[in-house]
Design a protein around this nucleic acid. Structure first.
Lengths: 210, 210, 210, 210
DNA sequence: CATGAATGAGGTTTCATTCAT
DNA sequence: CATGAATGAAACCTCATTCAT
């Protein structure tokens, strides 16, 4: 390994360290109330250093989305490339598990997506990062739709456009997370996330079976 | 109408005027980038006036949630008290329409709910407003679950807890809106919201039928 | 009594009502934290009405000084014009009592004087009010010095300029009030004002006797 | 000198720089009319920087009191620990000189003390600062009373509680300053402060001698 | 005369970002 | 590369004052 290579790795390690700290701080305080100084402290670095690795606060925040989408893509690719025989219910179950793992990997995922929608935020991103985000989103949707495509072709699933079905998986997942979290307003500490996700996927599974 | 009454109405009218302006500004610029001055300008009022009607920015924002939840409750009550014979698919369809109308009434609904989750935000609200929010949320969930209760008793729906089913309706709705909005990242201007919602409810309807 | 006269009295009554309320509010909250609305509420009037009787907040505040100085002058005049024989210690004791009564009449007196010193405050006053203030201050000083003049002429008091002695009475009074109030910082609730004033005047009395 | 030490000193220097500027601005414009921006400009710093050294405006203001009380304590300690023989009149004269120097060191001292009395102000202070203020006040009073204690024991002074006598010194000093400043209302530019202080202490000295 | 809703200037404070060391 | 003190723009919010009713 050359010295160049080692430097690059060291740099990547530092980026990850910052992102881990940022994830923690953002999830506790929300985007606005989280300050760059909070994140710097959590990462045991100085505020200035953050700017050596991320252009600005919006870009640091958005990078967290990249990370989670990469994880999602990885998992979906495994599932799609799995050689074992297609069994409709199994696939739905595996999809559900992936989505749940994604959530556990970074519960911020949905807040991120919401935040990213603000056009003011997007304007602050470098074109490269924006392109990466789009590419990763599109790819994860395509991977999911491949699964449904297979199910439709086999005659197991109802005859809907596979992208539409992938959309709905995304929607169910997002919705359950969003809804369960907002319910804390009502039932302060209880969290039925996993349970609700299971029920939702069960109903979805029944609904798309022919 | 006494002078007291007229004043009260005038005051309420002004509150609405501010909320309409706030809704517009928040939805264009997002919570953080929207300034109180922006909202004041949109309402054709001075910044100080806003504070005569709302304690602070968080409370103005949260009041928008009250408004939409009131609308939702109204619609759900109509549906629940409807005398006509129970037909499972019809009810699901009506529920879907209500949720869509709610969205059209105020597309901010979900952003609001997300924002409200921040405990820093909740701390800024008056106890009264917080209590109203909880009460309205709880009530809308109860109304929905009544519909499912009826369907379960008739043997039309699968045997799940009606509140769990109501949760899932909320989740599907939230998820579709969230997802479709976040997809603008990929397909900039297209909006398949209504379509996706219909497909999602169709699948949900099939899924909970016995 | 003509209708003109009655109106004038009514107007004066209203002014007093406002000043009483202002005194109460200023003494509880201090000049800055006291708002015109606070005072209006205390006076059971509307904020706008206050401006029918006082040009602005500074002038309302300063009018309180006028009131207390008028009271002081009244008391000093009685003392000076008293026909009974001059007895040095008695006079000192009477002076002390007057000063203490002045404090009880309006404990704000010293805060007022401090506040008035700000040239920004003085600039806001009408020339008439400013002239009244000066006249009343000068007069109270002159009245006091007459007492000392008599004492000096009789050979009871040391040979100092009577105005200087009057200054010192003022200073002792102001100082005791100021100091005892600031001591609340140390001994939270105890207030030895009257005691300290008595000791101070006793020492002063001994000090100016020949 | 380590780098740690140098940084600490640099920080202290900056604090002093701000306090000097604040003292100047507060004494010219008064607490309310003095803005943080004024102070920042006077200190040739930006407004934000002030908040790196002082939590808020009240705390910056109150820190000026700490500074002057420290100076007073230093001087009183020197006097108390002085080995030379006790001569009553000398001690009174030295006390007077100290008080006058304190005033010259920072003429704001009394305005500060007045301002501090507002409970709204005290609420804004950090517990540490508040504790320091109390400790310093208490200590200066104790130091002064030691002097009187000695005079009483020697039979030079009248038999009053030494703390009461210390109170009166404080009161005379406060009162003279307050009164001379408020007299500017009458005799615009003349300032007899030193003269009045001397007369007052002379009388006080005569008054407490046996 | 009295009201009190509305104003809007201006205050305090925060915090993303920069840059000399 | 890393630091962290300093910046300064801009946000929220207050409140003395006005004026239509």
């Amino acid at each position: 390994m050359g010295i160049q290579e080692r430097k690059k790795r060291e740099r990547e390690r530092r980026r990850q360290q910052i992102m881990v700290a940022a994830k923690r701080v953002f999830s506790v305080r929300g985007f606005n109330k989280a300050t760059m100084e909070d994140i710097a402290k959590e990462a045991e670095l100085s505020p200035g250093t953050l700017y050596l690795y991320f252009k600005n606060k919006d870009e640091l925040f958005s990078s967290l989305s990249i990370r989670i989408l990469q994880y999602l893509n990885l998992r979906l690719e495994h599932l799609v490339n799995d050689e074992k025989e297609f069994v409709a219910d199994e696939r739905i179950g595996e999809l559900r598990d992936i989505m749940y793992d994604v959530y556990e990997f970074d519960p911020l995922i949905l807040i991120n997506m919401f935040h990213l929608q603000s056009s003011d935020t997007l304007k602050n991103l470098s074109p490269q990062l924006l392109a990466d985000l789009k590419e990763l989103s599109r790819n994860s949707l395509n991977l999911m739709s491949k699964i449904f495509d297979e199910g439709i072709k086999k005659g197991d699933f109802i005859d809907k456009h596979p992208v539409a079905l992938a959309d709905i998986v995304w929607a169910i997942f997002s919705g359950v997370v969003l809804w369960e979290e907002s319910k804390r307003l009502i039932d302060d500490d209880k969290n039925y996330l996993k349970e609700t996700l299971e029920t939702a996927f069960e109903i979805f599974g029944r609904g798309i079976r022919k």
